[in-house]
Design a binder for these strands. Sequence first.
DNA 1: ATCTTAATTCGATAGATGTCGAAATAAGGA
DNA 2: TCCTTATTTCGACATCTATCGAATTAAGAT
Lengths: 96, 96
Amino acid sequence: MKNLSRVFKALSNENRLKVFEQIRKKELCCKEDSFEGCCVGDVAERFPLALSTISHHLKELRSAGLIVCEKRGQWVYCRVNHGILREAEDFLKGRL
Amino acid sequence: MKNLSRVFKALSNENRLKVFEQIRKKELCCKEDSFEGCCVGDVAERFPLALSTISHHLKELRSAGLIVCEKRGQWVYCRVNHGILREAEDFLKGRL
DNA sequence: ATCTTAATTCGATAGATGTCGAAATAAGGA
DNA sequence: TCCTTATTTCGACATCTATCGAATTAAGAT
């Protein structure tokens, strides 16, 4: 229950929700070419928010388990963790 | 997107999530006998929280659209709004 | 070694949130 | 009318959150 509320909290801020959607959208549209993730700068490009704020939102998404990040060179790539999405979905369906 | 983040925000507090679950559980187990809802006192019984706090959480759930409330006599009965649950579920599935 | 680029961390701050107990409102019963 | 019960609203307060810009860390490139 606590974990679930953490997931929902991570999605409870409008900007953070958009950040998450951005990562998911990119992942979806680049599925074919062995997508290795979306780097922080790419995510930040569309938002009227300081980079440090985006970084903070990504940290929240990460610690809620909604995304997974991996450093490659000087970039950090983020991907969606679909498992946890399914768990949240199951909760909403009433299968707890 | 804003509405969605409101729904998630309403579920983002652990106690509020439990309150919601309580209403849903009761609704589920009383489905047969023309369930008219769960009154505020019933919800509050299980929680180590002041009644005023429960009332506040119910207000949040209501204004996010997660529950519907109706006054009958001196009691207020709450029921789950399943439509909005389905919307949130669709979002998690990626069908936006 | 120094410079640049990517990202995180830090410190500050305004504003939101969760919680309580007390007071107010509303409905019913004696 | 007065009392009781159910619920909401109010005022206060401590804590958490979103945001910024500046400083820091890390990796490459020159």
